[in-house]
């Protein structure tokens, strides 16, 4: 009896300690299997994979449409995301999935004591410069993901698992592009 209660106390104090300090990340293989099973479930339940950038395209198309409906009417790219008007363009699978990504990321972060208002950067770059790079990188990512018809989630991960030729080509180009530029970005990260 006393042994059990003393274990209890130790357990509790460990937990309290864990909350003060962020927990280490999972092994990449454990997290990868978790991610792979989520993707597999999406295939089995929905017959489709994961995505991310598409949700933001729905958001942009909806926003532009609200401001200038005649403008989006003449643009076939926005039209694809706005649909025929039979349902709201934000009532979309990827939009709801990405809302879940925000929630799931927050849940995991808060449980591990990793939610923190901060800026991710190396020590040799100012916050203002880092945020400028973040914004510029985001713009390139947005354009690239639209040109490629998907991002790391929809193309590399989903299309990769489905052995799509375009997705594998895309994946090689993502790594190639990033490695080609990494040397010039070293002061931001190292």
């Amino acid at each position: 009896m006393s042994a059990i209660s003393s274990n209890d106390v130790i357990g509790r104090s460990d937990e309290a300690h864990g909350h003060a300090k962020p927990q280490p990340y999972w092994s990449p293989y454990a997290a990868g299997i978790g991610l792979g099973l989520v993707l597999l479930l999406a295939f089995v339940i929905m017959g489709r994979g994961l995505g991310a950038s598409g949700a933001f395209t729905s958001l942009v198309a909806t926003g532009v449409h609200a401001i200038a409906p005649e403008h989006t009417a003449s643009n076939p790219y926005y039209q694809e995301y706005l649909g025929d008007g039979s349902r709201h363009p934000l009532k979309d699978w990827l939009v709801f999935e990405v809302l879940g990504v925000f929630v799931g990321g927050f849940l995991s972060g808060i449980l591990a004591g990793r939610v923190k208002t901060t800026v991710e950067k190396g020590q040799h770059i100012s916050t203002a410069k880092r945020l400028t790079f973040a914004f510029s990188g985001g713009i390139l990512m947005g354009i690239g993901a639209k040109l490629a018809r998907g991002c790391t989630s929809g193309q590399a991960l989903t299309g990769g698992a489905l052995l799509s030729v375009g997705s594998w080509t895309f994946m090689m180009c993502v790594f190639g592009g990033a490695y080609a530029l990494a040397y010039f970005m070293r002061r931001q990260w190292l």
Partner: peptide
Amino acid sequence: GGLLLGFGFVIGGYC
């Protein structure tokens, strides 16, 4: 698109 995305990844830090 893949190349642009790769640039955006290492410049911005995320996908």
